[in-house]
């Protein structure tokens, strides 16, 4: 029953939303069909809205987004993974939005400092999850090509999924229960999509940690360089 916001927790949730929103924003003008331009942008905008609220709880949103170094970002590695093909983007969405939906549902039901935000976000995220599930079954159970691509994506991203359930300081949730619910849901979806549930490990072997400890994958640095360069080129300017 904490009433003060934990900076660690706010940054973790805020950075997840910020970074995934950025990745989805990269689809603009490149989506496989016009209707998906609109759908992906809707999801990106929801996430960006969540990020702004979360970051503002613990500082200035722009300072946090544009002036932190890579090692200070606390998002999970899953959300920073490059878009890849549409199957990669959809599987990343499935893995993350299922987690985020379960997490926010739990936070919304509690009385912690994130409850008000979670109560609003849980509705948005329910839609993101539905979007990902709809597309997962269509890609998995569509054509041979789409099945293969979906299977590849499913496996490539699998090793980033364990990190989401590690404890975060100040985030009062039952990680094990969350993980069990996530596995049940995601495995069910993959089977419905005629995909094989990957067997590999769900986290990296590096004991130093991962995104929540500020250790990111290589593409993330370039993503930040692009995101931050204009803001950093004009110190102190307002936009």
């Amino acid at each position: 029953m904490t009433t003060t916001v934990s900076t660690t927790a706010a940054l973790a949730l805020g950075d997840d939303a910020l970074v995934l929103s950025h990745r989805l924003g990269e689809w603009a003008g490149h989506a496989p069909v016009l209707e998906e331009e609109v759908a992906l942008a809707n999801i990106a905008l929801d996430l960006l809205g969540q990020a702004r609220v979360l970051l503002s709880l613990v500082g200035d949103e722009d300072e946090l987004a544009y002036l932190r170094e890579e090692r200070a970002f606390r998002n999970v590695q899953l959300v920073e993974q490059p878009n890849g093909d549409f199957a990669h983007t959809i599987l990343r969405q499935l893995y993350f939005s299922t987690y985020q939906h379960l997490l926010y549902a739990e936070l919304a039901a509690g009385d912690g400092p994130f409850a008000p935000l979670a109560a609003k976000a849980v509705k948005e995220v329910a839609y993101h999850r539905d979007h990902a599930e709809q597309w997962t079954v269509r890609l998995g159970d569509g054509t041979d090509e789409s099945h293969e691509r979906a299977q590849r994506a499913c496996e490539a991203l699998w090793r980033f999924t364990g990190e989401m359930f590690r404890p975060v300081e100040g985030l009062d949730v039952d990680g094990a229960a969350l993980e069990a619910a996530w596995l049940e849901s995601v495995e069910g979806m993959l089977r419905r999509a005629t995909l094989t549930v990957p067997e590999g490990p769900r986290s990296g072997a590096w004991r130093a940690g991962a995104g929540r400890q500020g250790l990111h994958t290589e593409p993330f640095g370039r993503m930040l360089a692009e995101m931050q360069h204009l803001h950093r080129s004009h110190p102190g300017a307002s936009w």
Binding site: E35, V38, A39, N42, D130, H131, Q134
Partner: peptide, 13 residues
């Protein structure tokens, strides 16, 4: 199913 979702995104933004 997708028609409904596309409609939601396109006509009720």
């Amino acid at each position: 199913e997708l028609a409904l979702r596309n409609a939601r995104d396109l006509y009720t933004r």
